[in-house]
Amino acid sequence: MLTLHNVSVNIDDTPILNEFNLEVPQGEVHAIMGPNGSGKSTLSRVLMGDECYQVTQGAIMYQGEDLMALSPEARAHQGLFLGFQYPVAIPGVNNMTFLKTALNAKRKALGQSECDAMSFMQLAESAAQTIGMDLAFLKRDFNTDFSGGEKKRNEILQMLVLEPKLVILDEIDSGLDIDALQAVALGINALRDAGRSFILITHYPRLLELVQPDRVHVMMSGQIVMSGDYTLANTLEEKGYGWLASNTVES
């Protein structure tokens, strides 16, 4: 599904990712953990095509194609989805309108017919029910006056409606209460299937307990320094990243 080979990334000439390698096969859920400043968010921004980041070397292949050749919107059309760490608000734009515009932009790009109001409503309502989201949220202005947790739930709602092939969730679990965390996990598990891959960027093992990823990677200084199954998250929780610094062996 996604392969990063020797990818180096700068922001304003400061190197952030350093010959980074990652392989996410189809149908797998990978978690990326690591201390602040290790380059996790940079990774997600590069994958979405944020032009502030300069890819100086390496290759990123998505479904066998060069991802870097695609515009951010084309990546979305091709099934990439980034759940933002800090989702923006758009006052005056109804949550439904935003989501419907996004869905139809994708359908149009793929040569599919646009989703009409009625079937869209059903789609959105069933997605909201999956994650226990109050339907009133669908009618509110997009993320306007939403709490942090509500914004994150709204990201998951969009993910469910857009049905992407590769989902990248950047700290989707930060600042969430237990109920919201459960809702996020429900959303991820509902969408998890053999044709779809996930990258979960997180600091906390709690989400990983609920989702049980296939692989956990630890990032430090712009590289993956250790990989393992989801129990690695608990080991990290116990021993901290300091343990890794003195023990940088890939398992």
Binding site: M48, G49, D50, S71, P72, E73, R75, A76, H77, F81, L82, F84, P87, V88, I90, P91, G92, V93, T97, F98, T101, A102, A105, K106, A109, D141, F142, Q158, L162
Partner: peptide
Amino acid sequence: RYCRARGLDEAQAVSMIVNG
């Protein structure tokens, strides 16, 4: 960037924000 990450092109994004 957010709107583009959701599949809207720049013109659609601006128009949506302005209409709001």
